[in-house]
Design a protein around this nucleic acid. Sequence first.
DNA 1: CTAGAATTGTGAAAAGTTGCACGAATGGTT
DNA 2: AACCATTCGTGCAACTTTTCACAATTCTAG
Lengths: 213, 213
Amino acid sequence: MATEIPDIVIGRLPLYLRALTHLAEKGQTTTSSHELGQRLGISSAQIRKDLSHFGEFGKQGTGYHINFLIDQLRHILHLNLVWSIAIVGAGYLGHALAHYQGFEQRGFRVAWVFDNDPQRVGETVNGVEVRHINDMIACLREEHVQMALLAVPTEAAQETADMLIEAGITAILSYAPINLKVPVGVQVQYSDPVVQMQRMTYYLNATAQYPET
Amino acid sequence: MATEIPDIVIGRLPLYLRALTHLAEKGQTTTSSHELGQRLGISSAQIRKDLSHFGEFGKQGTGYHINFLIDQLRHILHLNLVWSIAIVGAGYLGHALAHYQGFEQRGFRVAWVFDNDPQRVGETVNGVEVRHINDMIACLREEHVQMALLAVPTEAAQETADMLIEAGITAILSYAPINLKVPVGVQVQYSDPVVQMQRMTYYLNATAQYPET
DNA sequence: CTAGAATTGTGAAAAGTTGCACGAATGGTT
DNA sequence: AACCATTCGTGCAACTTTTCACAATTCTAG
């Protein structure tokens, strides 16, 4: 317990939380590391060891009380409050994100949407008014927003990230297919569908595919 | 060289490919493991070791010829042909994916879009006609489509995945926040923004956030 | 109250991954 | 030609992550 907890462990906690919430919604009240592992495709020992970094949450013979464990994980991940987030870029992707129904239940609230297209500014997306990107720094600074979803065209991604950092943002989920340069202390997560798809084609049988090029 | 190449290595190749393509577009013709590593936040030794699983692509003193290495990586990842993909679910997310401009350049073509809403069937999304999900199995089987992007509501995700597998799909990129049960031989990649966001909140300073709940 | 099944938390071993450091090769410069 | 600065590919060592396996605890049921 304590010292430095590996990032790879932190990365699995949201998956545990998601699976536990799913079980809770089905009305189940307790579970075991074995059951959880089965659902997630992870060994039961790994789940037990991961959790043991933070305390002793289970009971021998019984397993884990689901609601209790959910509560603990929420605290560990700082999800016992609602995080306001900004969506930057109100194109197709920005709209999809703004309409995503999974944020509220899981600790986030879309507080701001920004775009640089005057046509879009003033429009309302899922109840949130689109603001011009020129107002972004002032808005986010004032409200101490810490997290942003970056959904702008690739060419604009780095400069927009720079603005976000100037605005005090310290966590960015970027959908642009480039590596952002950010100062230490700023976290970045990436989501690039093509990278995930290309990882799979390695294992696919190319001869079964209709050729081209 | 040869034997079994670790999956973690495969997962980095698309990132190398992306960075190399970026350099090529800027007009650069050669690069080094050091330069590439800097851009990606990866050690140069790791890049060299990863590539050495597949052959010797560099030259001492000079580094790598970018176009040559791109070509090699494309072959390794089976991107020397264009993969037809299906998008299932034509909601906000399905639309965003269908309009994504990065597929063509990087080895993929949106060949099919499916939805179960009669209102949407017949509509055209970025030049592709939306078909009813009832026709899905027949369409995909006939064309030997191997990859699908799953963008349906959570409740429908598992049953839709089952249909995809019945249709012969062997690689799924799922946007639903659940773990899919699939037979061996079927690959699944997941994309859940909230999981990535929750991973970051662990490191964020909760006291700086306006409270709630 | 006891026996047996279930399940945790964890130390130690095994497996996997990354980084170091160096010989060998290359190209540019004097 | 000789030297120097680069840079690769790689064996080995260091580090990280996962798995094993078991004592300890709990619950159930007769």
